[in-house]
Amino acid sequence: MTNKHTLEKRGIRWNEYFIRSGLGLCTLSSVVTTGVIIYILVKESLDFFTEVPLMDFLFGTQWVPLFEPSSYGVLPLLWGTLVITVGAAFIALPVGLASAVYISEYASPKVRTIVKPLLELLAGIPTVVYGYFALTFVTPLLRSVFPGFNVFNALSGAIVVGIMILPTVATLSDNALRAVPDTLRQGAYALGATSFEVTTQVVVPTGLSGIMASFLLAISRAVGETMAVTLAAGATPSLSLSMQESIQTITAYIVQVSLGDTPAGGIAYKTIFAVAGLLFVITLALNTLSQWILSRYQAEYD
């Protein structure tokens, strides 16, 4: 026995060590996941690009991978994705921001506690349900107003995707607006400003980074959205400008291949890795930009 005033020497606490390692291993799984995603997409895409030149893929205007003579120009799929995304953004960004302004600046606390969960609920509805909504409600409505519309059309897809990403914009922008310190609003009101001036010239500019981040995140969702566009917009890769016609997005194409009987290993099968890689890069860029904006401007005010 040593003197009771002697401090214990440092040693390894084994159970602490094992627990720590176990938890660390779990953490590693997320890193591994990223590694695997990138590895698979890159490896299979490289395979694909040994057979199809990268330039033909990126700038070709014909996407006919499943039939002879085949052609692997991805532009029509990109165009389809772009049409849906821009259309959806056109609806969701202004409407979502206006809703955020209403919830954060105008609604009474009571209304707020009702509307915010409702919007979150709207965000939780599975995308396949939005697909149903598009096919059984939006499309028939469009066709009864404009008889020229195809059963599968870009506009219907864009509308439901817009409705789908609206809650994302609204709730995240609301958070951004609510983070604007109240003292700024009071400062502005004390100068004789109206609520409109306070909101548009002080509150929204101050929360702009959060709002932009929410926009980018919502756009990224729209780009990656699959079921609603597969059901609503159809499976016709095209560079058409018309919102009445069927188009095909990157995601819808992947679904089409997986539903068909394309044999694994063939070039047609490998196309899904190439287009998925493209999708991954686009959404990653949007998300990274969104995070960058947030971290860059977050510390500006407190």
């Binding site: 698979i40 990656g224 992947i254 694994a264 890795f273 991954f280 959404t283 990653l284 995070q291």
Partner: peptide, 27 residues
């Protein structure tokens, strides 16, 4: 970096996970 990686993973479209699942787990 790990934090950043996780928030990026949250933004990967679900269909990409489907492709990974198909390649890794199914095949």
């Amino acid at each position: 970096l790990i934090q950043l990686n996780i928030s990026n993973l949250a933004g990967v479209p679900s269909i990409v996970y489907g492709i990974i699942g198909l390649t890794i787990f199914v095949r």
